[in-house]
Design a protein around this nucleic acid. Structure first.
Lengths: 213, 213
DNA sequence: GCGATAATGTGTACACTGTCCACAACACCA
DNA sequence: TGGTGTTGTGGACAGTGTACACATTATCGC
């Protein structure tokens, strides 16, 4: 006897259920944020019974963390995409500054283009123990935070930033950009016109540059 | 016949159920963040049946928004407390700068002292329609954002900030401080030693000062 | 080739949540 | 004093995460 779910699949084995569940989870997160990634709905979309998920994820929270890693990776790729648009010139001070700006711009663009994924990427797990940070990286092998660090290193190498100011600089830059992203997504700046948001984004990046040196 | 809940209360009427539910909700938010404020648990603590909540709040989300307003008010009071520690001197440029720093410091202190309430204060409602911002204000009648605006106005009045740079300045300052708060609460800077966190906080405030002018 | 074994999906069940509906107990006012 | 509106109760339902036993299948030693 075959239920509708199994009939829709045909075979007993799914083939690649883990990947399918993850994709479904990502889709849920994209449209509804972290709270929307619900285990039963993911299995429904995979055409499988709820408990099947437990063969691949220890819990709903485990699934969410996997989705979160995926979201972080998507963010990293968005930042890399912005970096790829840069002219591949010599590592001058100006180009190092442009790197930093591109990193920030990619971050902000992603936050606005994919608010659900962005919020998921930085959602804190309900279960407070085991705070293993999900590692989501882009093509460069670096995560969002790593890309920022690399940009800052470049600034130092190019001579645009004093080495003495380097330690902890990522916290300053990240704070500013992340805070703005929050404002834009569900703070007072939500549904602000795109062009105006872009203006303020540039101003925040100005502030970071000014304040870093 | 009286159930255990009603027996614990004695009277049929509760007296001030709305307030009690709100307080219970705040307590839940304090220890577990926005996801922890669950309607049934609040009614349980109030010694009342779950449905009784619906006489005072339209839905769980409605209760959460009320708690959120309370959290915003607590944040505003924390900022005001920091302001109260300032010497009540003449409105000089230096004192105006100190105001801004105090606003930021109060913000960061609250985030670290009450992470659950802080996260609740800025939780986005699951139901995306009706984004009426809950108004939580302190003794001054201003909310957190209003207090920041007032500090910036003071900077302009004292001559420390050019009026041309005033518009939108709250977004810059708020972004930086809020982003850092997030880092400290559940980002990579979580469980960083208090003194070191304080150091970085001051550096972020430095960045804001530098970057604003 | 074949049978044991481990991996993967199913079925049933339970506790818990938010919320709807009808009803009960009370306060208050004509 | 009695009617009316407010507030709390009881029971029910759908939806969620997850534990347990069971069914089906791939894989590997023989």
């Amino acid at each position: 006897m075959s239920s509708r779910a199994t009939a829709a699949r045909g075979t007993y084995r799914h083939g690649d259920l883990k990947r399918t569940l993850l994709d479904a989870g990502v889709e849920l997160a994209r449209t509804g944020g972290p709270d929307a990634v619900v285990l039963r709905e993911a299995t429904r979309r995979a055409g499988v019974v709820p408990n099947a998920a437990y063969r691949h994820f220890a819990s709903r929270d485990d699934l969410l963390q996997a989705v979160r890693a995926e979201a972080l990776a998507a963010l990293a790729r968005a930042m890399e995409r912005e970096l790829a648009r840069l002219p591949r010139g010599t590592p001058s001070m100006a180009s190092a500054r442009a790197w930093l700006r591109a990193v920030g711009t990619g971050y902000l663009r992603f936050a606005q283009a994919e608010p659900g994924l962005f919020r998921t990427a930085f959602s804190v797990r309900r279960d407070p123990r085991r705070d293993d940070v999900p590692r989501g990286v882009g093509k460069s092998g670096l995560g969002p935070f790593g890309l920022l660090g690399a940009a800052l290193d470049r600034l130092v190498e190019s001579g645009a930033l004093s080495p003495s100011r380097r330690p902890g600089a990522e916290y300053l830059a990240w704070s500013a950009v992340h805070g703005l992203a929050m404002l834009l997504i569900d703070g007072p700046l939500r549904d602000m016109p795109r062009t105006r948001a872009r203006k303020i984004g540039q101003r925040v990046l100005d502030m970071v540059e000014q304040g870093l040196f």
